[in-house]
Design a protein around this nucleic acid. Structure first.
Length: 423
RNA sequence: GCGGGCGUCGCCAAGUGGUUAAGGCAGCGGCUUGUGGCGCCGCUAUUCGGGGGUUCGAAUCCCCUCGCUCGCCCCA
């Protein structure tokens, strides 16, 4: 038991798991590049103000979950709790929109100081997509379909796409007043959290999980009745397009999402296999964010997928233990050099190869070779070393009857032999 | 921040007050000094997350603490 341990909520990604991650990331990269997206990488640390303004002072994320600290120059810094604000900042700062709309993706660690539980860590990883400078409903549909196709391709089934429209900012502010009035009249019937939220974040009350509040809210004014015709048409059109793309969805009028910057389309992809943290992908339109950060009014939409949750759902579908093609066995001083030389030579021919360093008996080394599930054992002993010969032996898997095949050859024939034996 | 459950070897675990803390997997060594998959034999926790206390005696009881885990809030 070591006394040095990782911090709470910070998780090591062990070799077995990292293979899954690589697989997922490569699938993602393929999807993104086919969709014409480019990657953007932004720093993990930003000015605290970026998130306070971008995400919203009154959100839980900003209010109680951020890792803040002052650097040596006394600047207030924050470990990014999400990716969108940083991407938006970068776009504004570098004037990327002068080159037209930006279709971007990113991935990396995010930090939120919360109590860890299934599907939730303090350092977690998101992979996300942002379409910045595009207003068309088509972009909403395309962005959603990129997420959907990607998740499907990773092998996830039983996913549910929920969508909602939060309307324009104007729609929402009218509704907000109406809702506040309605709620204030019933103040005493609300749970404590909801009472606190009336003034600064009434929309979130709609999302309450408290049963009594839920019941009360069934009578409350609904945002969908406050959508302007334009907003409604927009939402209808999105549904039409999703149907055309054969992406099944469900309308959830209570889907509000916790970050302030969303407007119009909001969506979530959930799974019932994740425990209580059911959301694997969340996103929406954020037409106000870029201007909030000092840019010009720029319509944008994006989403983020939680890698850890995705990996949980993918389960062992992605587990693919790579076994070596060749396991190099050697014994004796002369053999040592030759073994290393050959090992490195084989690597350059694109093979997975493992060199035994134990120096123990051939018997032991063969046992290990077998355990590694290698296809071939390359044997170099004193004899081979002194004669400049190599012995390649086929390792059988579980077939007792088959005779083992051995090939003796000289060093210079190695590449040719390999080509012949391994495909 | 608030609740519930749990912490015995790298992993899975038995043990619930009494002399040396089962077992399995993995690891290492041997049977077999140059040939594997099977088998057999041996080795691997002075110690039960940490710290106090109760007791003649504690992994087992009590207190504190740390950590893990599940849920609430919220989010990916």
């Amino acid at each position: 038991m070591t006394n040095l341990k990782n911090l709470r909520g910070m998780v090591d990604l062990l070799p077995e798991q990292s293979q899954c991650w690589q697989k997922v990331e490569s699938i993602a990269l393929e999807h993104f590049s086919r969709a014409g997206l480019k990657e953007i990488r932004t720093p993990i640390i930003e000015q605290t103000e970026l998130f306070a303004r971008g995400i919203g002072e009154n959100t839980d994320v900003v209010g109680k979950e951020m890792y803040n600290f002052n650097d040596r120059g006394g600047r207030s810094c924050t470990l990014r709790p999400e990716g969108t604000a940083s991407v938006a900042r970068s776009i504004v700062q570098h004037g990327l929109l002068n080159n037209g709309p930006q279709r971007l993706w990113y991935k990396g660690p995010m930090f939120r100081y919360e109590r860890p539980q299934a599907g939730r860590q303090r350092q977690f990883h998101q992979i996300g997509v942002e379409f910045v400078g595009l207003a068309s409903v088509m972009s909403d549909a395309e962005v959603i379909s990129i997420a959907w196709d990607f998740l499907k391709d990773v092998g996830l089934n039983d996913l549910t796409l929920e969508i909602n429209s939060l309307g324009s900012n104007e729609d929402r502010s009218v509704f907000k007043k109406e809702l506040q009035d309605w709620l204030n009249k019933r103040f005493d019937l609300l749970d404590e959290d909801s009472q606190k939220r009336i003034n600064f974040n009434p929309l979130r009350i709609l999302d309450s999980k408290i049963n009594s509040t839920k019941e009360l809210l069934s009578e409350a004014p609904s945002l969908k009745d406050f959508l302007s015709n334009k907003s409604k048409t927009r939402f209808d059109y999105l549904q039409e397009m999703l149907a055309k793309l054969k992406i099944p969805f469900r309308i959830n009028n209570n889907l509000v999402r916790g970050l302030d910057y969303y407007s119009h389309t909001a969506f979530e992809i959930t799974s019932d296999q994740l425990g209580s943290q059911a959301t694997v992908c969340g996103g929406g339109r954020y037409d106000g964010l870029i201007s909030e950060l000092g840019g010009t009014q720029t319509p944008s939409i994006g989403w983020a997928i939680g890698m850890e949750r995705l990996i949980i759902l993918a389960g062992d579908k992605l587990l693919q233990t790579k076994s070596p093609d060749v396991y190099v066995i050697h014994r004796g001083e002369k053999a040592e050099q030759l073994a290393l030389e050959i090992t490195c030579q084989l690597r350059s021919s694109n093979l997975t190869i493992e060199l035994d360093y134990s120096g123990s008996s051939f018997s032991k080394q063969f046992k290990r070779a077998d355990k590694s599930k290698a296809k071939w054992a390359l044997v170099i002993g004193e004899d081979e070393a002194s004669k400049g010969h190599l012995l390649m032996k086929k390792l059988r898997d579980k077939q007792h009857d088959e005779d083992s095949k051995e090939y003796i050859f000289s060093k210079v024939d190695l590449d040719q032999l390999i080509k012949k034996l391994i495909d």
